[in-house]
Structures are given as structure tokens and as C-alpha cells.
Design a protein around this nucleic acid. Sequence first.
DNA 1: CTCCAGGCTTTAG
DNA 2: CTAAAGCATGGA
Length: 274
Amino acid sequence: MKKFDFDATYFSPIATLDCGQTFRFYPFKDGFFVVSRDKACYVWSDGVKTVIESDDCDYFYNYFDLARDYKSVVERAKAFDIPLLNKCAEFGKGIRILNQDREETIFSFIISQNNNIPRIKSIIEKTCSALGEKKAFLGREYSTFPTTYQISKMDKTFFRGLGAGYRDEFICETAKKILQDGILHLENCDGATLKKELLNFKGVGDKVADCICLFAFGKTENFPVDTWIEKIFREDFGGTIKDRKKINAYFCQLFGADAGIIQQYLFYGKRQNL
DNA sequence: CTCCAGGCTTTAG
DNA sequence: CTAAAGCATGGA
């Protein structure tokens, strides 16, 4: 086991984990137990330093995007001088955009569609404990996220039984397609191209594709539009149109290369009633 | 009871 | 091309 620490000003575990990027984290001791892929870490903060303990610190350094300068991102966000964004960027300045496992993120966000966060967590957790591998870190047991091969061996009634609802066949179809085609062709493309490719998976539409681009491929120019962003567009940007493609285009043009990170500030802040 | 949740696919116009 | 119906499930 190794550990390292990081300035807490722009790295808040709770803000990073609780803004809907990942669903695999649990309250643990003075912070959180975080699972990604087959790895685990313990992260906690005293408000000055945020500390990570793990058997693979390099993995979680990248996972939490610790090489990016978020001070600059927050400054650029505030420079737009938009009232809600000023508040949200300050409140959420500790958010890091996670660099998550590609396949885990694809399945997780297929499950997320038209669903609420507690139930998303529950379905993912049941999937991991049923198909994943049992491991332990710091005396706590956890299950790894199953491989696509393991997922592809199950039929849709299995996922229906875990509570996935009508998303059961999306999971099965996508697992088969990934097993056939791989995901190597998704590497090294720009955000727009990657999104177009991801739309070929069953159960992946515009919003889920943007989430995968942002949370698993580091495409910070992609801006996911969900019910909360629609609400923000209406209430805080004076918007009237309802077409999510057009709302997405509006925010992408407005925020440019930082759009995805700013989306997280807005999403997190709005959900906290800012 | 209805409405909503980090929407998508399919079908109709 | 856009618009709307239908979709499982659980909580408010």
C-alpha cells in the first residue's frame, strides 16, 4: 500500500464523486472507498490536503485527472461572468473530471438512462457482485467490474433480474458488439467523431455518448444534456427551445474546449440548489 | 394515484 | 427530416 497527497483546493473527493460521473464509491472511514475497474483506493480530505491510498497510485493519479490545471479552468469559467456559473464554479472548484475505464463507463451510462442515481448504483453494484471478482483493500471487500466477455455470456433475463428493466437488451447487444469489434477504433479521434462512433451502440444516444466521451475519453469539449441541464437552460439562460440537440449546440459553442467541465460545475451546483 | 429519474429506440407524419 | 409513443422500476 502506498499513499500520496494533493492540494485540496481543486480536489474535493465529495464534489468529484457525488456529481454523477461514477457510481462505485462508498463512505469509508474519514472519506470514501472508490472502485474503478479491478482497482480500489481510499480517498479523504481535511480541506487542506486530499490523500489517496492505493496499491496503484499511478492509476488513481490519472483517474482523478491530477495532471490538469483546474485553477485555470475555474478562472476561465468565471470569466464568462454568468451569475449561476460564477456560483457553481466556486462551489464546485474541487471537481475533477474522472478518467474512467472505457467499457465500464459505456455499460454504466447505458444503465443510467431515464433512471435515478440510487437505482443506477444498485443495478451496477448487483452486476459487479454477481459477475465481478472478489477482492479486498484495507480490509474492505469489493467486487471488480466484470469484463465485457463476462457480461456477454449472460442473457437479458439475467440483467432484468438485477433490476435493469428494459435496458437489459441494450447491455447484451452492446457487450456482443464490443466483443466483436473491440474498442480500439475509438482511440485517437476527436470528440465529435468519437460521439458518432458511440451512437452505434444500442442504448447509447446523444446524452450517454457525451458522458462517455467526457468521463472515459477526456473529451472536455463534449457537453451532456440531461433533464437538469434542460432546467438550467430554461431557468438560468432564458432558453425556450426544447430540442436537446440544439441546447447541446448552444452550450458547446458558448463554452468551447471547457464545455464538459463547466457542465459538471453547473450540474453539481444546480442539484445542490445554488 | 401521478410524476420523475444524468433518455433511447422505434414508428408515424 | 422532426415528433411522439413506449419502455421497467422504484421513490416522492
